[in-house]
Amino acid sequence: MTKPDSHSSDHVYESISFHAMGGPCELKLYAPTRGAVQAAADAAIAEVQRIEKSYSRYRDDSIISAINNAAGKNFTAVDEETAALLDYAHAAFEQSDGLFDITSGVLRGAWDFKSGVLPSQKRVSALRQKVGWQKVEWRPPNIRLQQAGMELDFGGFGKEYAADAAARVCKEQGIEHGLVELGGDIHVIGPHPDGSPWRVGLRDPREPEKAIHIISVRQGGLASSGDYERFMVVEGRRYCHILNPTTGWPVTEALAAVSVLAPLCLIAGTGATVAMLKGEQRGQEWLAALGLPHMWVTSTGELGGSLVAAGR
């Protein structure tokens, strides 16, 4: 992230850092007064915390825990927001031909990327049985996971949704210039007060502290996915944290990194995640068909996508 280089005299600028959604978060906001920035930031952080609390699978009192604890047993009735999120997950599952699957979280039980040891195929296969959106009975507003041990996990889109929701809250508070960043997922509320865009660096998958490309964003969501976040190299081969729900194994021949720009961070995130899951060739095709501005990096370091072409 680059710091804003322009500063309008009738706007106060503040950058507010906090920790949520399992990572560092930042609000960069302009408002007429310091009080207005603070009020917007307080409301936005409260919204992020509300979503985190509602959908964390680590909290016993979350709706996700209630659904997961009833797996193989009874139906759980959900509220409207949860229902809309489940509908979204369903749409993403269908559009990605089953690759975007919010039940795939259980596979993490087999994969310890810090160990440097591959799990046994038997262990992976056993967990694979607990994966599959098609094994979920979603009859709004009631949901039931068919098998005991199945789990829903909103980790694949909760952070992006929270970024969009926090941006909406800021806008409701009158903020027109600023951005919300939750652990690398960004929703740009609007450009700097002088109209100049935010300059956002996209990570180099092989040197994640460096930017491989810098893009300009005036408004909308930007999300990235890559094989660099958690991975292990076993016998010269790279195994990343992006697990294919249909095999239970990390995606093979995947793109190294993908970034997508969309009106909403949620859609950008889904676009990027699915592109990673599809593998190098089909991932590029998916991005092109989606029609959103995007950038990809292959495992050999080749850059491509409409954002790269536009930036040059």
Binding site: D164, R168, K171, E172, P263, L264
Partner: peptide, 11 residues
């Protein structure tokens, strides 16, 4: 005006 940009209109 996208639906997520209607916060003023919804006040």
């Amino acid at each position: 005006v996208e639906p997520w940009d209607r916060q003023y209109l919804a006040r």
